[in-house]
Design a protein around this nucleic acid. Structure first.
Lengths: 168, 168
DNA sequence: AGGATAAGTCAGCCTTGTTGACATTCCAAG
DNA sequence: CTTGGAATGTCAACAAGGCTGACTTATCCT
C-alpha cells in the first residue's frame, strides 16, 4: 500500500489502482487461454496433452538436458513428468541416453519425429504470438516482457534468464 | 511470415524474429506460474482449488450472474462447473437464488464468508501484480495489456471488454 | 399443447497433478 | 576397499478437475 516508488507524484500512480490491476489479472487469465489454445487443439487429435508439449519444448531448448533439470524447469514432481516422458520415449519422439560421466543421469534428446511435432506445436503458438506482437507494436512488446518478468517467482526468473541468454 | 505491416521498414521488425517471440512464449509460461502461485498456496490449506477461485472471482465481478453466463466466461462444461459450485454453495460461500423474471435461472451471489475468501485470494494475487506493475512502470503496463488483448480469442476478448467497461 | 431453454444430476472416462516405496548408481568417510 | 548416504530415475496408487453422453425437472414461449 505504500507508494515508495512514486516517480512523478500523485496522478501518475493511477495505473496502480485496484481497478487497473484487476483488469491486468483478467487480461492475464483470458490471454493465457488463447496462448494455450492452438497447441491444445493440435494435441487433442493425437494422444498427448499440454504436459507433453511443455516437455517437448524444453527438451528442444535444452537438448541433452537431464530429467532432474527438466523437473526444476517445469516445477512438477518427477513422477508426473515420468509418465509424460515415458509415453514420448515409447512412441519414439524422445530419446533417453544414459549419462557418460554419471550413469544415474539420463540425457534427453528429440528424435526426428519428436522434432517434427515440436516444430508443429511451436509454429502454431508462435503464429498467434507473432500476430499479437505485430498488432501491439515493438514498444508494447517491450513492456509486455518487462511486466511478465517482474511477475515471476525468483527461481523461475533465473531459469528464464538462463534460457534467454543461452538461446540458440 | 509476410511482413505486411512493416511500419518503418527492415530493422524495425527485429522484435518479430522467432527468437524474440520464443522469449515471449517462455515469459508467458513462467509468469503465469507466478500469477497463480499465491492463491494456489492459500487454497491448498483449504479444501478448494484453482477452479473454485475462478468461480469466486467472476461471481464477485458479476454479482447475480446466472450459471449459464458463468459457464461461457469460464469456458468449461456445466458438469465441471457444477461440481465446484455445489461445493461452494454447500459450504455457504455462494448463494443461489431463483430468478424473478425467469424462474429457470439461478442467480449467484457471494455470502459474507464467500466475499471474505474472495477478498483474501484477490488481495494475494493483486499484491504480486501491483509489485510487477510498479517495477515495470506505467508505459510497460500499457504495453503489457495491449499484447495480452491481442493474444485473446475473439469471443474471450468480448467477455474481457464487457468486464472492463462494466467495472464497478 | 409442445418444442426450446436453464439448470442440475448420474455415470464414467482422461490428463496431470500428488505421495510413498523402491532400484540403481555415485561418492566420500571410515 | 567397503559401506552408507545422497542423488537419479521408476513404479503403484490416488485426487482434482477437465471431458462426453444421457437424462430429468422446471419453466418459458409460440
Amino acid at each position: 500500500m505504500s507508494d515508495r516508488s512514486a516517480p512523478t507524484g500523485g496522478q501518475a500512480l493511477l495505473y496502480l489502482t485496484d481497478e487497473q490491476i484487476r483488469k491486468g489479472i483478467e487480461a492475464m487469465y483470458f490471454a493465457y487461454r488463447g496462448f494455450t489454445a492452438d497447441p491444445d487443439r493440435i494435441l487433442s487429435d493425437k494422444e498427448y496433452g499440454r504436459a507433453h508439449h511443455r516437455a517437448l519444448h524444453f527438451i528442444h531448448r535444452r537438448e541433452g538436458t537431464t530429467v532432474n533439470n527438466l523437473l526444476s524447469l517445469l516445477g512438477v514432481t518427477k513422477q508426473s513428468l515420468n509418465r509424460v516422458l515415458r509415453a514420448l520415449i515409447d512412441d519414439g519422439l524422445v530419446e533417453s541416453r544414459v549419462g557418460r560421466a554419471d550413469k544415474r543421469e539420463r540425457h534427453l534428446y528429440l528424435t526426428t519425429a519428436g522434432a517434427t511435432l515440436e516444430r508443429e506445436l511451436s509454429d502454431a503458438q508462435r503464429d498467434r504470438m507473432r500476430a499479437a506482437y505485430r498488432a501491439a507494436g515493438p514498444a508494447a512488446v517491450a513492456g509486455f516482457r518487462q511486466v511478465l518478468e517482474a511477475m515471476m517467482d525468483e527461481d523461475l526468473r533465473r531459469h528464464y534468464q538462463a534460457l534467454k541468454d543461452g538461446g540458440e
